[in-house]
């Protein structure tokens, strides 16, 4: 990494660390910052498999929910400390990732087929969570509020912000490593042309299972953090398709397969969402104005895709001559 890039990264980190102080302790701003960082972190977990390795998933909520449920069940039903339950949840996410990866990649699923099978897995997990006794089914699971750092609960939202910042920075570092390491290079080769990668002697099956496990582990870490912040999960919250879509969106809007794509995507989407929602609330004169906000949100989404086909990161990559529009793959 060049000196300037290093400096820039350090500066950015300092700015992010100081951000909560800039707004005079506004919890709204802190909470918004948390949401952006959290979405960026989840988006990065998607990006690692979907962007860097080209294994697009529609069902990443399966990992998110696994993490949320694993730590919550250990904590609520078995009295574990959430800090201890967290690594177990991460391991569970990795295991589910490895499991789904082994099954799907063994069957040779690629592209849309792989995306659809992840969607189906998430749906199967949602129905299971709704039906089996140890998740308390549709009743959901409530975590007792006991704000104390030792319980991974904080009275002041600023600590969740910093926790999300740490996770986000770690995920950025991981993404950066993927652009530098041999592992990352193998993934890129798989993304560009899997058959060619295999011909080069890459064990594509093993690499893909690994990357899905890694992605699942990260995403599950997010699930635990979510449960600890909001203190309640149910099958639709944990395994719902909304979560999967959001992870995919922030990544692809920002630019899939780039280091900063998910962060930018999360920033852009939350910015648009907050502003449009604010407008909806500020227009009581128009009866039923709130849907207008989401209409504007949807239109902006289409426009971003239409005019920044590489995602927002494409804004400053476009100057480099890139092969464009390879047609329908």
């Amino acid at each position: 990494m060049s000196r300037t890039a290093l400096l820039a990264c350090g500066g950015g980190l300092i700015a992010a660390a100081l951000y909560p102080l800039l707004f005079g302790g506004s919890n709204y701003a802190v909470n918004l910052g948390f949401l952006v960082l959290f979405a960026a972190f989840l988006g990065q977990s998607w990006n690692i498999a979907g962007g860097f390795a080209g294994q697009m998933s529609f069902g990443h909520a399966v990992f998110f929910g696994t993490g949320a449920y694993a730590s919550t069940i250990l904590h609520v039903s078995h009295g574990w400390n959430p800090w201890l339950a967290w690594p177990v949840a991460i391991a569970a996410g990795a295991a589910v990732g490895a499991g789904i990866g082994t099954l799907s990649f063994r069957a040779g699923l690629r592209g849309s087929y792989f995306a659809l099978v992840t969607l189906a897995f998430a749906e199967a997990f949602r129905i299971l969570a709704n039906s089996v006794p140890f998740t308390r089914g549709g009743l959901g699971m409530l975590i007792k509020s006991d704000p104390h750092p030792a319980n991974l609960q904080f009275r002041d939202p600023i600590w969740f912000y910093y926790l999300a910042l740490v996770l986000c920075v770690l995920s950025l570092a991981l993404a950066w490593w993927l652009t530098r390491s041999r592992f990352g290079a193998r993934l890129a080769a798989i993304r560009e042309n899997e058959d060619a990668a295999r011909a080069l002697g890459i064990n594509t099956f093993r690499e893909k299972v690994r990357v899905l496990a890694l992605s699942g582990a990260l995403c599950a870490a997010g699930g635990t953090l979510y449960a600890q912040k909001y203190l309640y999960i149910d099958p639709s919250i944990a395994f719902g398709v909304d979560k999967s879509i959001e992870m995919l969106l922030v990544s692809m809007i920002g630019g899939a397969g780039t280091i900063f794509g998910p962060l930018i995507g999360a920033g852009v989407l939350h910015f648009v969402s907050e502003v449009t929602r604010e407008l909806g609330g500020a227009l009581p004169a128009i009866k039923n104005a709130q849907p207008l906000a989401l209409i504007v949100y949807g239109v902006i989404l289409v426009i971003i895709v239409g005019y920044l086909p590489d995602g927002s990161m494409g804004l400053f990559r476009r100057r480099r001559a890139l092969p464009q529009g390879q047609g329908h793959a």
Binding site: L249, M252, Y297, L301, V305, G306, G327
Partner: peptide, 21 residues
């Protein structure tokens, strides 16, 4: 067709956006 620039992932996002709208 116009906004997707012939890319599958863009079509996916556009149909998603259309669905929200």
């Amino acid at each position: 067709g116009r906004l997707s620039h012939g890319r599958d992932e863009n079509i996916l996002l556009i149909t998603l956006g259309l669905s929200i709208v």
